[in-house]
Design a protein around this nucleic acid. Structure first.
Lengths: 218, 218
DNA sequence: AGGGAAATGTTCTTGAAGGTACATTTGTAT
DNA sequence: ATACAAATGTACCTTCAAGAACATTTCCCT
């Protein structure tokens, strides 16, 4: 029963890649929803077309599956980011667009956010071990660094602007917006999470980041 | 062996309040460090002067202990905030001070931050059930609301400024700074977490929030 | 002083969940 | 067509950890 594409009249068909994809997709969703310990291998398998056996066959153990799921989540998100083209925009516009995009992109990928939350709870143990992910993120910041350089050269951004610090600010808002929604809305209501509220927050976040970057803001 | 204050020559002395405090303090630290499922009741008890029996006697079950630990963490942090006096400052200075204070205060209370992270992973289940905590937070935002009103009246802040949205921005930076340190430093290095880096981030965060609030920023 | 309630110590039970053993089928190379 | 490796199915085992049972001591009230 390990076939995802079609046929199964009798017995089963081998489909290693399909099985792996199937398991990984469910694992991301399950780990993201419940965290490492609360996610149960049996539950993951139940949402799969395959058997528990295959998880251990392909991923070794629960920890191995988790690590691969984390990588898969990063890969998917970074792929989405790669589509963004900012090269033709002036620095201020490019930065504004990057912030707004990141804000929306994080909103659209709650599973990714939650995987990162879980990693942080676990002191980034699995993340540290993954060379793959480190490379992905270096690429992610290069885009921002290029904008900073152009902005400085044109004199519209402060000199000595640190792209990493800027990335920190952009991430903080965009990440917190998703990660802390449960507690925040419980304590302060849902207003900032309505469409209008989110739209206001996005604008404010752009303004806040520009205030840090621009040379003409006191 | 359940005495925290002094004597134990033979047998033991009853000390209900001390025992509860002892358990709660360890529970906060343990839950914050490992999350709900990975925190083990036996481990908590091991760091305590009491026995497992007492946890179930006073807190019912693990979940009950967790809820009380969450409340304890909130209480402690909100107490620290209450010490902050802003009434005599002009709005811009008051807001600046509040932001800088929050930034530092979150840094100094990583256990609280981590408890909130865990709550968010768990969809704020325990938080929703706690009336106590809700009240604490309403009080927390009143201070900010008062600053906003004064600032609007003096014409230095925009009209229609939403204190909750402002709180969102302040929290986002201050919270993310602690919550995402493990993954962020793994991916982008420790620079922003050195004393100098943190000092720069704090200044930038103040500037960013002011840019949102002030009437004279484009 | 003594009796009942509150607090604490000690030991055991049990279920869930991660992981393994063993068996079988499918695909592929010669 | 056959033999071997890869892929999958099924059933079981083991351990860990939450919580309960049972026993004892301390405190307070009259």
């Amino acid at each position: 029963m390990a076939n995802l594409t079609a046929d199964d009249k009798r017995g089963w068909t081998q489909n290693p890649e399909g099985v792996k994809r199937d398991i990984l997709a469910v694992a991301v969703s399950e780990f993201a929803a419940r965290g490492f310990s609360r996610a149960k291998v049996d539950d993951i398998v139940a949402r799969t077309q395959t058997s528990k056996r295959m998880i251990y066959y392909y991923f070794g153990d629960k920890k191995g599956l988790y690590t691969r799921a984390l990588e898969a989540a990063y890969l998917k998100v970074r792929e989405g980011e790669a589509a963004l083209d900012l090269g033709h925009l002036r620095p201020v516009q490019a930065l504004s667009k990057l912030v707004a995009f990141t804000f929306d992109h994080h909103r659209e990928n709650p599973d990714f956010i939650r995987m990162v939350m879980i990693e942080n709870i676990h002191q980034a143990e699995a993340l540290s071990a993954s060379e793959t992910i480190r490379e992905l993120n270096i690429a992610a910041i290069d885009k921002l660094r290029e904008i900073c350089e152009r902005g400085e050269n044109e004199g519209v951004f402060r000199r000595g602007l640190d792209p990493v610090a800027l990335h920190w600010h952009i991430s903080a808002a965009s990440f917190f917006n998703v990660s802390n929604r449960p507690t925040f809305s419980t304590l302060f209501g849902d207003d900032v999470f309505t469409d209008d509220g989110q739209s206001r927050l996005r604008i404010q976040t752009v303004k806040a980041v520009l205030a840090i970057a621009r040379a003409d803001v006191v």
